[in-house]
Simulated scan of single mutants.
Amino acid sequence: MALLRTSEIREMTAEERSKTLAELRGELMHERGTAAMGGAPANPGKIRALRTNIARIQTIQKEEEKN
């Protein structure tokens, strides 16, 4: 999973953002579960990328709530 750019996130509709956020959270939960069971992650930086994407989406959602 590549990092989402803020411009890409801003172009999404609120519904698309919510859907993407749910998918990312599910994927993060899966990756954390794999790591917790002692499995070697296929891509070690994936958890960080997922967390960053989630934070970016949440930040933009908060900004748009204010406006």
Rank of each mutant, 00 (worst) to 15 (best):
M1P: 00
M1H: 07
A2N: 10
L3P: 00
L4E: 04
L4M: 13
L4A: 00
R5L: 05
R5Y: 03
R5D: 00
T6I: 10
T6E: 15
T6D: 11
T6P: 01
T6V: 10
E8N: 08
E8W: 03
I9K: 06
I9G: 08
E11M: 12
M12V: 08
M12W: 15
T13D: 14
A14E: 13
E15W: 04
S18G: 15
T20R: 09
L21N: 12
L21M: 08
A22I: 06
E23F: 09
L24Q: 06
L24E: 06
R25W: 05
R25I: 09
R25G: 01
G26D: 14
G26W: 02
G26C: 04
G26N: 11
M29V: 08
H30S: 08
H30R: 11
H30Q: 08
E31Y: 04
E31W: 03
R32T: 03
R32A: 02
R32I: 06
G33D: 01
G33L: 09
T34D: 05
A35I: 04
A35D: 08
A35N: 06
A36K: 12
A36P: 01
A36V: 04
M37H: 12
M37T: 07
G38E: 14
G38I: 11
A40E: 09
P41L: 09
P41S: 00
A42S: 11
N43I: 06
N43G: 06
P44F: 00
P44D: 03
P44A: 05
K46H: 07
I47C: 00
I47K: 04
I47P: 00
I47N: 00
A49R: 03
A49F: 03
L50E: 05
R51K: 09
R51P: 02
N53K: 04
N53D: 08
I54F: 07
A55G: 04
R56W: 02
R56E: 00
I57G: 07
Q58V: 10
Q61L: 13
Q61D: 11
Q61W: 02
Q61I: 14
K62Q: 12
K62A: 14
K62W: 01
K62S: 15
E65I: 13
K66S: 15
N67W: 14
N67V: 14
N67S: 13
N67T: 13
